[in-house]
Write a protein that binds this DNA or RNA. Structure first.
Lengths: 349, 349
DNA sequence: GCGGGTTGGGAAAAGGTTTTCTCAGAGGGA
DNA sequence: TCCCTCTGAGAAAACCTTTTCCCAACCCGC
């Protein structure tokens, strides 16, 4: 009876190293390295032989060793406090997409609103020598619960409040609002109301101001915006306020909403009152939260903040910072786009 | 006139190394390393002095160097194809939370449904010597578009179809469905209908079967489940099918829905017909998608799959695999929980 | 035949840490 | 005094790759 050999863990053989490639090709590691990186001088034949050997052996350079030497790890950290992910996820996907092609990987760091967690993540990333950090959040007027101001590495802020002097990317909320209101105007609507979220949000004011501006530019009467919550329930209440009065002559013929949930509430409340959308009243939302916008009856026209493009831009901006290109500090605003569905009358011809 | 010195890039001084700590403390790097790691033998006084020096200098060991030596990078990869993130995000947050405390960071890899992207991400992770991979998806009966079967490193599948022989974690859909149906029964409902998503989803059958089982165990008549789409619109249609017939004696007194969107559609359609929820008909959803569940009128009781707990478990399972603990292959099901709101009559006392 | 340039390739250091081995000195027993 | 054992600490190898420097051989023209 023989003792069984140690049962091999599933394919546990270690990765092949440059040294093994060199040995197999009968050259030194230095030559092997140069052959694979297109550096140094050697006969084309030697270079090709080494390359072929590496290919055959399935050699892949150890990124850790490379990073140690180059002082560049080809990783970045992505900080977020948006657990729910409605805004973060497209953003994160955009960052990751922009970077994966350049061989840069992204550490996911969910810091909630927890100082300790933030600290923990930042230290872990620093220890792992990330080349830079993208900080994202769920609103652009709040800081993440971490201090990124004195790091050795570049930081880009996307959809969250940047430190002074840092690079920040946000969506152009005012521009997005203009898109919506001007769309209404092109369709011939004139009495355009605005229903939005809590006054504590900076975006609420930015969007309301743009709405006001466009109305005034077109010499239209402008009332106070209705500010409440980011909820369907508030959409219902707002309809009561707007359409509760007897006599339909004062009723709006369009409602521009601060987000899609409010718009959903508005549309449902209008239907319950027998007011037709879009025939009697047009509705436009904000966020273009697809699953909500497509479930309203009729489907909701909405402003899209292009968050994955924002993420991509943030990733690229960080990369150029890492490469040492100076970037203009300050906040850069990226344009929104209007996604036309059926809640404000057919698209203009 | 003197030439200005090179303007220092913002705090560009490199991190302090062990060598510097050793020099400052007047010992060798070997001794310094041992002092900080609690290894080796030296006077308590020496150890303390070195520690103090390191603290003063803000020394943090270079994780890359450590990883290179220990053949353990304290990073794992997180693969997902759920860009929208409704399921992925809590899962991902769970994985990350479980691991950050152990000093393990998580690479975010969004592979969409793109083979090439999957390949790219997997190779990047392998190059960076991740210790293991968590694969997650948006449904448990589909593979990710990557082959993880012959990797050198352990893989755990969470909420996606595992390779045969691998470790997989999913929610207990049947158990979740039982929770819902049994809740109805406790409240005295007897004619419980089931409206769910497309028959192409495995979970649809698992949930429907559990519904059927509970009904039969309680000697209740069971009809065919209504299978359609995962949408509000289908919820409306299903109500037409269930409640369209004249004569309310055959009407259900409860509807168990395959997800929250269907439930939302059902509730809205019932209200439009003047059927009261929960007085006439109770409704329970699935997924506990908070933002939907809380916006229905009345707020929706729903089955929660505990996805962040699932993520946590997946992270821990991967870690023990990485540590060499053998794990039983196969699929482990984690319990769901019922979140009671107001759509099926007051919570049982 | 010889100096100078070129060509192909290797040796070695560097990056930061951990770990094993070695060693000098101190202390103790005979 | 001699031998042995401990104790505290350092030297060096190892992890894997890149890059700089160096060297031997060859070719050319004179």
């Amino acid at each position: 009876m023989s003792i069984d050999p140690e049962p091999a863990p599933v394919s546990a053989k270690p990765p092949v190293t440059l040294r093994e490639v060199a040995a197999a090709a009968g050259v030194s590691v230095a030559t092997a390295s140069k052959a694979l990186n297109g550096q140094g001088r050697m006969t084309a034949e030697t270079r090709e032989r080494i390359r072929e050997t590496a290919r055959l052996l399935g050699f892949r350079p150890n990124s850790l060793a490379q990073s140690l030497l180059r002082k560049r790890s080809f990783t970045v950290g992505l900080l977020t406090n948006d657990t729910y992910g409605r805004f973060s996820l497209p953003l994160m996907a955009g960052v990751s997409d922009a970077l994966v092609d350049k061989g840069v990987s992204v550490f996911l760091c969910n810091v909630e609103d927890d100082q300790r967690l933030g600290q923990l993540h930042v230290e872990a990333m620093l220890d792992k020598r990330v080349d830079g950090i993208v900080a994202t959040g769920k609103r652009i007027d709040r800081h993440l619960p971490v201090d990124l101001s004195n790091l050795r590495i570049p930081v880009v802020y996307a959809f969250t409040q940047p430190d002074p002097g840092a690079v920040g990317l946000v969506s152009d909320d005012a521009g997005g609002a203009r898109l919506a209101v001007e769309h209404f105007l092109r369709l011939g609507r004139r009495r355009i109301a605005h229903v939005s979220g809590p006054a504590s949000f900076a975006v609420v004011h930015a969007r309301a101001q743009a709405w006001r501006d466009v109305m005034r530019e077109n010499s239209l009467a402008v009332s106070e915006p209705l500010l409440g919550a980011w909820s369907e329930a508030w959409g219902h209440d707002a309809v009561e306020k707007l359409f509760g009065r007897a006599g339909r002559e004062g009723w709006p013929d369009a409602v521009f909403c601060g987000n899609d949930q409010i718009a959903r509430g508005v549309i449902d409340a209008l239907r319950e009152r027998g007011i037709r959308v879009p025939d009697d009243v047009g509705v436009i939302g904000f966020d273009n939260w697809q699953i909500v916008a497509e479930a309203t009856r009729p489907p909701l026209t909405s402003v899209d903040m292009n968050l994955s493009a924002l993420g991509r831009e943030a990733g690229l901006a960080l990369l150029s910072l890492v490469d040492g290109q100076p970037a203009a500090p300050g906040i850069r605003k990226l344009p929104c786009r209007l996604v036309v569905r059926q809640s404000c009358g057919g698209p203009p011809q």
